[in-house]
Write a protein that binds this DNA or RNA. Structure first.
Ligand SMILES: [Mn+2]
Ligand SMILES: [Mn+2]
Ligand SMILES: [Zn+2]
Ligand SMILES: [Zn+2]
Lengths: 130, 130
DNA sequence: GTATTTATTGCAACTTACTTGCAATATTAT
DNA sequence: ATAATATTGCAAGTAAGTTGCAATAAATAC
């Protein structure tokens, strides 16, 4: 993986990820940076950022790839090489989950890694008792 | 969901799934039935078969949807509403796994369902001791 | 600083998975 | 057999993602 130059477009994207609450799809980004950068640039930058582990991605249940920042030291999730992801059935937002899911051993298969997508209701969408 | 008519194309696909060892992508099917049916027909039939629970699908780690038959009564996996899937890093074949993965409870989230994609080496690709 | 090297960008053209409208056809119901 | 309607093939369309290339901007060497 080649050097990543600190161009304006790269910095905008990095800043965006620093502030972002939830993983976003490429189309979200293309729309958001509509006037500022070309979609091919966005595709290429995301590829580089992921390749150099500054962001990570997962595949949503409809096959859409979503990108999220790699949180920094302080964050509990930052350390985890791999973590499950969550998609809210209500608002559609997704999240990185700071939990570990254990895999049972499966006869005839050697499991090397796993991807988990949990679905349900996020905190924002949960009816609250006042 | 409307009635599913037993047309030649539908029967071909059902037969194919009955014999199939592994889940297949739509593109696999389009190629396989290249001369026999139109791709739009394949898309539409798969939709109907899945809608009436005769097949099921999952999303591969590269976002590709793969379809597999719903096994019949005898099969251990047939009964399971939900099961994890496996993709071999070596041969690329995928499988339905007849195991249950337990989900830890996650604070602030209500988990309603989960999709698991395990990756590793399948039996065929495992070096065997003679 | 200036010159040099090379990564990155925007643009337009392209590829391709997937969708859609519609008229013709095949199933199913009567 | 007739009528009703689900399904099909085809051709055209949509849109996500890719690519080549010349212009530009970063990083590096001087
Ligand atoms: Mn994550
Ligand atoms: Mn399965
Ligand atoms: Zn929500
Ligand atoms: Zn294998």
């Amino acid at each position: 993986m080649a050097v990543i130059r600190k161009t304006k477009t790269v910095e905008s994207l990095i800043n965006f990820f620093k502030k972002s609450e939830h993983p976003v799809s490429i189309l979200d980004l293309i729309e958001k940076f509509d006037t500022t950068m070309d979609k091919s640039t966005i595709y290429r930058i995301l590829e580089r950022l992921e390749g150099s582990n500054m962001i990570h991605s997962f595949i949503d249940s409809d096959g859409v790839k979503r990108y999220a920042q790699l949180k920094d030291e302080g964050s509990s999730i930052g350390k985890q090489e791999k973590h499950p992801h969550f998609v809210c059935n209500d608002c559609g937002n997704s999240s990185c989950l700071p939990v570990k899911i254990s895999i049972p051993s499966v006869p005839d298969y050697i499991i090397e890694s796993a991807e988990h997508l949990l679905k349900g209701i996020c905190k924002n969408c949960t009816p609250q008792v006042k």
